[in-house]
């Protein structure tokens, strides 16, 4: 066998083995979408990736079954709001921790870092009573406040700090010469230079909020205030049985747009997760 043949064989093996490994990663998505088009009876019939009859009406029924459009919008605007707030707060705090020398900084860091390790399940019970006291039960308030100020917000702060630390000092000094305040430097110099970090925080935060489940489960009770994950889990008939065809149609509607965005911006998105993970 020549070297060329050997290389081609190696490559074929590489492609083949990765393709086999990829099956359980791709298959659920394909099956989800295809089953979303099937009828309740066909879904458990002979397995076939292509529905015998394409039931487009499933996708109409999804919206009739519960206020799905409203729930979709809820998830979008909450994730948007959480993202914007997290960006502002984490970059402010991250900037101070990275570029300013102040008494108590070290202690503060240690204090904050401890939060990264504490699961939400530990604090959710007292937060339930806190939110009740604040009159925020069955509102979107907890779904904004807890991600922004909880461990996720701290993680974002550290990510921003990590990036700010590496920025060259000279630019800030130039800014100070021009008479900029600290806030001005943060806004006009530090932030524009930190686009990759901001993008990373934005991406991870958006997805974090978008996929949040425990908090909505505990704090939201009205159908029209549900977020998507809650809504998806709620496709059961009046007696608690899954309505698989509708559930899978709705799940497709929730997942496919995110997947499309992911496919377009996969490099950026994967890098964002890499940035947030490495520092852990």
């Amino acid at each position: 066998m020549t070297q060329g043949q050997l290389d081609r064989l190696k490559r074929a093996m590489w492609v083949l083995s990765l393709s086999i490994l990829a099956i359980p990663f791709v298959f659920p998505f394909l099956w989800m979408v295809s089953s979303g088009f099937k009828s309740a009876t066909e879904i458990f019939g002979q397995p076939s990736l292509v529905p015998r009859i394409w039931r487009w009406t499933n996708f109409v029924e999804v919206f009739e079954y519960q206020p799905f459009a409203q729930q979709y919008f809820n998830s979008l605007y909450i994730a948007g709001l959480v993202t914007v707030l997290t960006l502002i707060l984490s970059s402010l705090a991250g900037y101070a921790l990275a570029r300013m020398r102040f008494a108590g900084a070290g202690l503060l860091m240690l204090f904050l870092v401890s939060a990264l390790m504490v699961p939400e399940e530990v604090t959710i019970i007292p937060n339930f009573f806190l939110m009740r006291w604040l009159g925020l039960m069955d509102t979107h308030g907890p779904l904004v406040l807890l991600p922004v100020f909880g461990p996720h917000g701290v993680m974002a702060t550290f990510l921003m700090r990590q990036y700010f630390v590496a920025l060259p000092k000279e630019l800030e000094e130039a800014g100070r010469m021009d008479g900029l305040s600290r806030l001005g430097i943060w806004w006009k110099i530090a932030l524009p230079m930190s686009r990759p970090a901001l993008a990373a925080v934005a991406i991870i935060t958006f997805l974090f909020s978008w996929n949040l489940f425990l908090e909505p489960l505990v704090f939201i009770s009205s159908l029209e205030k549900f977020t998507l994950p809650l809504a998806l889990a709620n496709f059961t008939d009046a007696y608690g049985l899954p309505l698989w065809h509708l559930q899978l149609a709705a799940t497709s509607l929730a997942v496919v747009p995110i997947l499309i965005v992911y496919l377009i911006a996969q490099r950026q998105i994967i890098e964002s997760f890499a940035m947030s993970g490495v520092k852990g």
Binding site: P28, N211, P229, I258
Partner: peptide, 9 residues
């Protein structure tokens, strides 16, 4: 891809 997908889905 599954990482960006909601755990619920």
């Amino acid at each position: 891809a599954p990482v960006v997908t909601s755990a619920v889905a």
